[in-house]
């Protein structure tokens, strides 16, 4: 499995660390304990297209937004998380 890092080019997946699904963090001012715990524990865990956060650990050490198909492990896109902002 290859991930095309925008800074380093195509690299083997072993260079990266999977961090989590890409999700919106609830607003600390508004969120109920229930919403926080959902955010902490519940996952979409899709079988198919997934939007994820990865770290290029043995490369540029940047966080990346990665779009990947979880049945085939095919990576569609990888973009720098910091330029895209938190979405």
């Amino acid at each position: 499995m290859l991930i095309s890092c925008p800074l380093c080019g195509p690299r083997d997946a072993t260079e990266f660390r999977y961090v989590d699904e890409r999700r919106q963090r609830p607003d600390p001012e508004q969120a109920s304990p229930q919403q926080w715990r959902d955010y902490l524990y519940v996952r979409a865990n899709p079988s198919g297209p997934a939007r994820e956060l990865w770290l290029h650990r043995s490369g540029c050490r940047q966080y990346l937004f990665v779009d990947r198909h979880t049945l085939t492990n095919e990576v569609q896109t990888a973009a720098l998380a910091r330029t895209e902002g938190t979405r």
């Binding site: 997946a13 072993t14 999977y18 079988s47 997934a50 049945l71 492990n73």
Partner: peptide, 13 residues
């Protein structure tokens, strides 16, 4: 394996 997946392929690693 180090990342989630529904693929059941083995790896050389």
């Amino acid at each position: 394996d180090p990342f989630p997946s529904y693929s059941m392929r083995g790896s050389l690693q």
